[in-house]
Protein backbone atom coordinates (compact mmCIF):
# COMPACT_ATOMS: atom_id res chain seq x y z
CA UNK A 1 0.00 0.00 0.00
CA UNK A 2 2.74 2.37 1.02
CA UNK A 3 4.85 1.77 -2.06
CA UNK A 4 1.88 2.01 -4.37
CA UNK A 5 1.01 5.32 -2.78
CA UNK A 6 4.58 6.46 -3.15
CA UNK A 7 4.84 5.57 -6.82
CA UNK A 8 1.50 7.00 -7.72
CA UNK A 9 2.26 10.43 -6.38
CA UNK A 10 5.94 10.63 -7.07
CA UNK A 11 5.75 13.42 -9.64
CA UNK A 12 3.15 15.43 -7.73
CA UNK A 13 5.57 16.05 -4.86
CA UNK A 14 8.05 17.66 -7.20
CA UNK A 15 5.38 20.03 -8.45
CA UNK A 16 4.80 21.16 -4.88
CA UNK A 17 8.42 22.00 -4.26
CA UNK A 18 9.27 23.26 -7.72
CA UNK A 19 8.22 26.92 -7.25
CA UNK A 20 10.34 27.20 -4.13
CA UNK A 21 13.33 25.54 -5.78
CA UNK A 22 13.15 27.87 -8.76
CA UNK A 23 12.99 30.93 -6.51
CA UNK A 24 15.82 29.62 -4.35
CA UNK A 25 18.03 29.14 -7.39
CA UNK A 26 17.09 32.47 -8.90
CA UNK A 27 17.02 34.82 -5.92
CA UNK A 28 19.43 33.22 -3.48
CA UNK A 29 21.94 30.98 -5.23
CA UNK A 30 22.33 32.92 -8.44
CA UNK A 31 23.31 36.17 -6.65
CA UNK A 32 25.70 34.13 -4.52
CA UNK A 33 27.42 32.53 -7.51
CA UNK A 34 27.40 35.86 -9.30
CA UNK A 35 29.17 37.41 -6.31
CA UNK A 36 31.71 34.62 -6.52
CA UNK A 37 32.31 35.38 -10.18
CA UNK A 38 32.66 39.11 -9.54
CA UNK A 39 35.20 38.36 -6.81
CA UNK A 40 37.70 37.50 -9.57
CA UNK A 41 37.20 40.82 -11.33
CA UNK A 42 37.95 44.48 -11.07
CA UNK A 43 34.75 46.41 -11.31
CA UNK A 44 33.58 49.90 -10.36
CA UNK A 45 30.12 49.86 -12.04
CA UNK A 46 31.22 52.35 -14.71
CA UNK A 47 34.10 50.83 -16.64
CA UNK A 48 33.80 47.32 -18.07
CA UNK A 49 34.69 44.40 -15.82
CA UNK A 50 38.23 43.18 -15.99
CA UNK A 51 39.30 39.66 -15.07
CA UNK A 52 41.96 39.68 -12.37
CA UNK A 53 42.29 36.03 -11.43
CA UNK A 54 43.11 35.65 -7.75
CA UNK A 55 44.36 39.20 -7.30
CA UNK A 56 41.43 40.27 -5.09
CA UNK A 57 42.01 37.32 -2.78
CA UNK A 58 45.75 37.96 -2.67
CA UNK A 59 45.00 41.53 -1.73
CA UNK A 60 42.49 40.36 0.86
CA UNK A 61 44.82 38.16 2.90
CA UNK A 62 47.40 40.94 3.04
CA UNK A 63 44.97 43.81 3.64
CA UNK A 64 45.57 45.15 7.17
CA UNK A 65 42.14 46.81 7.25
CA UNK A 66 40.40 43.55 6.38
CA UNK A 67 42.38 41.66 8.98
CA UNK A 68 41.63 44.34 11.52
CA UNK A 69 37.93 44.16 10.66
CA UNK A 70 37.95 40.41 11.24
CA UNK A 71 39.75 40.92 14.55
CA UNK A 72 37.29 43.65 15.62
CA UNK A 73 34.31 41.49 14.71
CA UNK A 74 35.74 38.57 16.63
CA UNK A 75 36.68 40.72 19.62
CA UNK A 76 33.22 42.29 19.87
CA UNK A 77 31.70 38.81 19.78
CA UNK A 78 34.17 37.55 22.38
CA UNK A 79 33.43 40.53 24.64
CA UNK A 80 29.77 39.63 24.83
CA UNK A 81 29.40 35.90 24.29
CA UNK A 82 30.60 34.54 27.60
CA UNK A 83 28.86 37.27 29.52
CA UNK A 84 25.71 36.65 27.49
CA UNK A 85 25.75 32.87 27.84
CA UNK A 86 26.79 33.05 31.50
CA UNK A 87 23.89 35.33 32.38
CA UNK A 88 21.54 33.26 30.23
CA UNK A 89 22.62 30.03 31.93
CA UNK A 90 22.07 31.40 35.44
CA UNK A 91 18.74 32.95 34.48
CA UNK A 92 17.58 29.81 32.70
CA UNK A 93 18.46 27.79 35.79
CA UNK A 94 16.34 29.97 38.05
CA UNK A 95 13.52 30.27 35.54
CA UNK A 96 13.21 26.50 35.40
CA UNK A 97 12.80 26.34 39.22
CA UNK A 98 9.34 25.77 40.52
CA UNK A 99 9.00 28.95 42.57
CA UNK A 100 8.99 31.00 39.39
CA UNK A 101 5.85 29.52 37.93
CA UNK A 102 3.77 32.65 38.26
CA UNK A 103 6.12 35.45 37.19
CA UNK A 104 8.06 33.30 34.74
CA UNK A 105 6.28 34.45 31.63
CA UNK A 106 6.55 38.09 32.60
CA UNK A 107 10.30 37.91 33.09
CA UNK A 108 10.85 35.92 29.92
CA UNK A 109 8.87 38.49 27.96
CA UNK A 110 10.82 41.43 29.41
CA UNK A 111 14.21 39.77 28.91
CA UNK A 112 13.33 38.86 25.35
CA UNK A 113 11.87 42.25 24.39
CA UNK A 114 15.12 43.95 23.22
CA UNK A 115 15.66 41.13 20.74
CA UNK A 116 12.56 42.05 18.74
CA UNK A 117 13.28 45.75 18.43
CA UNK A 118 14.87 46.97 15.22
CA UNK A 119 18.66 46.98 15.71
CA UNK A 120 19.08 50.35 14.00
CA UNK A 121 16.50 51.88 16.36
CA UNK A 122 18.38 50.52 19.37
CA UNK A 123 21.72 51.72 18.04
CA UNK A 124 20.31 55.19 17.30
CA UNK A 125 18.80 55.31 20.77
CA UNK A 126 22.03 54.24 22.46
CA UNK A 127 24.08 56.63 20.36
CA UNK A 128 22.08 59.62 21.57
CA UNK A 129 21.76 58.35 25.14
CA UNK A 130 25.56 58.04 25.23
CA UNK A 131 26.24 61.34 23.51
CA UNK A 132 29.16 63.15 25.04
CA UNK A 133 27.65 66.56 25.78
CA UNK A 134 23.92 66.01 25.78
CA UNK A 135 23.46 62.30 26.48
CA UNK A 136 21.21 61.28 29.35
CA UNK A 137 23.60 58.51 30.40
CA UNK A 138 26.41 60.91 31.30
CA UNK A 139 24.02 63.17 33.23
CA UNK A 140 22.77 60.15 35.12
CA UNK A 141 26.28 59.06 36.09
CA UNK A 142 27.14 62.61 37.14
CA UNK A 143 24.02 62.87 39.29
CA UNK A 144 24.83 59.55 40.90
CA UNK A 145 28.30 60.86 41.62
CA UNK A 146 30.02 58.11 39.64
CA UNK A 147 31.84 60.46 37.28
CA UNK A 148 32.67 64.14 37.44
CA UNK A 149 33.16 65.03 33.80
CA UNK A 150 31.06 63.68 30.92
CA UNK A 151 32.76 60.73 29.24
CA UNK A 152 33.09 60.66 25.46
CA UNK A 153 32.16 56.97 25.26
CA UNK A 154 32.09 56.55 21.53
CA UNK A 155 35.40 58.31 21.07
CA UNK A 156 37.39 55.63 22.86
CA UNK A 157 38.29 52.41 21.09
CA UNK A 158 37.73 50.36 24.20
CA UNK A 159 34.38 51.89 25.11
CA UNK A 160 33.12 51.87 21.52
CA UNK A 161 33.74 48.12 21.39
CA UNK A 162 32.34 47.63 24.86
CA UNK A 163 29.16 49.55 24.00
CA UNK A 164 28.70 47.52 20.82
CA UNK A 165 29.31 44.28 22.68
CA UNK A 166 26.99 45.27 25.52
CA UNK A 167 24.21 46.27 23.12
CA UNK A 168 24.40 42.93 21.34
CA UNK A 169 24.56 41.00 24.60
CA UNK A 170 21.61 43.01 25.90
CA UNK A 171 19.59 42.20 22.79
CA UNK A 172 20.35 38.47 22.85
CA UNK A 173 20.70 37.19 26.43
CA UNK A 174 16.93 36.71 26.79
CA UNK A 175 16.79 34.58 23.67
CA UNK A 176 19.63 32.39 24.97
CA UNK A 177 17.99 32.14 28.41
CA UNK A 178 14.68 31.00 26.93
CA UNK A 179 16.28 28.31 24.76
CA UNK A 180 18.45 27.05 27.63
CA UNK A 181 15.44 27.04 29.92
CA UNK A 182 13.50 24.94 27.43
CA UNK A 183 16.43 22.53 27.34
CA UNK A 184 16.52 22.36 31.14
CA UNK A 185 12.78 21.80 31.46
CA UNK A 186 13.12 18.73 29.26
CA UNK A 187 15.43 17.05 31.80
CA UNK A 188 13.65 14.37 33.77
CA UNK A 189 12.88 15.21 37.40
CA UNK A 190 13.90 11.64 38.39
CA UNK A 191 17.55 12.32 37.65
CA UNK A 192 17.63 15.19 40.12
CA UNK A 193 15.72 13.21 42.74
CA UNK A 194 18.09 10.27 42.64
CA UNK A 195 21.03 12.67 42.78
CA UNK A 196 19.49 14.28 45.86
CA UNK A 197 19.14 10.88 47.49
CA UNK A 198 22.79 10.25 46.75
CA UNK A 199 23.59 13.46 48.61
CA UNK A 200 24.41 15.78 45.74
CA UNK A 201 24.05 19.51 46.42
CA UNK A 202 22.48 22.03 44.05
CA UNK A 203 25.74 23.04 42.42
CA UNK A 204 26.83 19.45 41.86
CA UNK A 205 23.49 18.65 40.27
CA UNK A 206 23.82 21.67 38.03
CA UNK A 207 27.32 20.74 36.92
CA UNK A 208 26.86 16.99 36.61
CA UNK A 209 23.31 16.73 35.33
CA UNK A 210 22.06 20.02 33.91
CA UNK A 211 25.12 21.13 31.94
CA UNK A 212 25.83 17.81 30.20
CA UNK A 213 22.18 17.32 29.30
CA UNK A 214 21.65 20.78 27.81
CA UNK A 215 24.86 20.55 25.83
CA UNK A 216 23.08 20.36 22.44
CA UNK A 217 21.11 23.53 23.24
CA UNK A 218 24.24 25.20 24.54
CA UNK A 219 26.04 24.33 21.32
CA UNK A 220 23.17 25.65 19.27
CA UNK A 221 23.04 28.96 21.15
CA UNK A 222 26.81 29.31 20.97
CA UNK A 223 27.00 28.66 17.24
CA UNK A 224 24.05 30.94 16.52
CA UNK A 225 25.78 33.71 18.46
CA UNK A 226 28.98 33.13 16.50
CA UNK A 227 27.30 33.16 13.09
CA UNK A 228 25.32 36.25 14.05
CA UNK A 229 28.39 37.83 15.62
CA UNK A 230 30.45 37.44 12.45
CA UNK A 231 27.67 39.14 10.48
CA UNK A 232 27.65 42.08 12.87
CA UNK A 233 26.71 45.22 10.95
CA UNK A 234 23.66 47.21 11.99
CA UNK A 235 24.73 48.32 15.45
CA UNK A 236 28.35 49.38 14.82
CA UNK A 237 27.28 50.96 11.52
CA UNK A 238 24.76 53.22 13.25
CA UNK A 239 26.82 53.85 16.41
CA UNK A 240 29.58 55.38 14.32
CA UNK A 241 29.97 57.40 11.17
CA UNK A 242 29.87 54.14 9.22
CA UNK A 243 33.64 53.82 9.24
CA UNK A 244 33.94 52.19 12.65
CA UNK A 245 35.55 55.20 14.29
CA UNK A 246 37.54 55.81 16.44
CA UNK A 247 40.55 54.32 14.70
CA UNK A 248 38.39 51.71 12.95
CA UNK A 249 37.94 50.06 16.33
CA UNK A 250 34.41 48.89 15.56
CA UNK A 251 34.80 48.45 11.83
CA UNK A 252 33.35 44.96 11.35
CA UNK A 253 33.92 42.72 8.35
CA UNK A 254 30.46 43.33 6.93
CA UNK A 255 30.92 47.08 7.35
CA UNK A 256 34.18 46.85 5.44
CA UNK A 257 32.46 44.75 2.78
CA UNK A 258 29.70 47.35 2.51
CA UNK A 259 32.09 50.29 2.40
CA UNK A 260 34.38 48.75 -0.20
CA UNK A 261 31.50 47.63 -2.43
CA UNK A 262 29.06 50.48 -2.22
CA UNK A 263 30.95 53.51 -0.97
CA UNK A 264 34.27 53.06 -2.76
CA UNK A 265 32.63 51.10 -5.60
CA UNK A 266 35.24 48.36 -5.51
CA UNK A 267 32.63 45.70 -6.19
CA UNK A 268 35.12 43.05 -7.18
CA UNK A 269 37.07 43.46 -3.99
CA UNK A 270 33.86 43.69 -1.97
CA UNK A 271 32.79 40.36 -3.48
CA UNK A 272 36.11 38.84 -2.43
CA UNK A 273 35.51 40.10 1.12
CA UNK A 274 32.06 38.43 0.99
CA UNK A 275 33.61 35.10 0.21
CA UNK A 276 36.38 35.61 2.74
CA UNK A 277 33.65 36.15 5.33
CA UNK A 278 31.68 33.19 4.03
CA UNK A 279 34.74 30.96 4.36
CA UNK A 280 35.44 32.20 7.89
CA UNK A 281 31.83 31.56 8.95
CA UNK A 282 31.84 28.04 7.49
CA UNK A 283 35.18 27.15 9.06
CA UNK A 284 34.31 28.54 12.46
CA UNK A 285 30.88 26.90 12.51
CA UNK A 286 32.32 23.53 11.58
CA UNK A 287 35.07 23.90 14.16
CA UNK A 288 32.75 24.86 16.98
CA UNK A 289 30.36 22.00 16.24
CA UNK A 290 33.33 19.69 16.23
CA UNK A 291 34.78 20.81 19.54
CA UNK A 292 31.46 21.03 21.31
CA UNK A 293 29.99 17.78 19.99
CA UNK A 294 33.24 15.92 19.45
CA UNK A 295 34.21 16.05 23.13
CA UNK A 296 30.97 14.57 24.23
CA UNK A 297 31.31 11.67 21.84
CA UNK A 298 34.78 11.11 23.25
CA UNK A 299 33.40 10.79 26.78
CA UNK A 300 30.66 8.44 25.80
Amino acid sequence: MGSKFARKYSITGLYFILPFLVMLLLFRLYPLLFTFQISFMRWDLLSPREFLGLANYQRLVADPVFLQSVWNTFLIWLMNVFFRLGVALVFAYFLSQRFFSRSKHFFMAVFYLPNLITATSIATLFAILLDWRTGTFNFLLIELGLIEQPVYWLNSAFWARAVTAFTIGWMWFGYAAILLMAGMSAISEDLYESATIDGANEFQKFRRITIPLIRPTLTYVFVISLIGGLQNFDIPMVLTDGLGSPDRSILTTVMYLYNQSFRNLNLGYGAAISFGLFAVIMAVTAASFRTLYGNRDGIE
Partner: peptide
Protein backbone atom coordinates in the same frame (compact mmCIF):
# COMPACT_ATOMS: atom_id res chain seq x y z
CA UNK B 1 19.12 15.53 -1.05
CA UNK B 2 16.88 18.44 -2.00
CA UNK B 3 15.58 18.83 1.54
CA UNK B 4 19.03 18.89 3.11
CA UNK B 5 20.26 21.10 0.30
CA UNK B 6 17.55 23.63 1.15
CA UNK B 7 18.39 23.33 4.84
CA UNK B 8 22.04 23.94 4.03
CA UNK B 9 21.22 27.31 2.47
CA UNK B 10 20.24 28.53 5.95
CA UNK B 11 23.99 28.59 6.68
CA UNK B 12 24.73 31.04 3.86
CA UNK B 13 25.10 34.52 5.32
CA UNK B 14 22.81 36.88 3.37
CA UNK B 15 25.62 39.45 3.13
CA UNK B 16 27.72 37.01 1.13
CA UNK B 17 25.45 37.49 -1.87
CA UNK B 18 25.07 41.26 -1.53
CA UNK B 19 27.21 42.34 -4.47
CA UNK B 20 25.62 39.74 -6.75
CA UNK B 21 22.13 40.70 -5.61
CA UNK B 22 22.83 44.34 -6.31
CA UNK B 23 24.05 43.56 -9.83
CA UNK B 24 21.20 41.14 -10.43
Amino acid sequence: ILFYGILGTIMIPPQAALVGLFEF
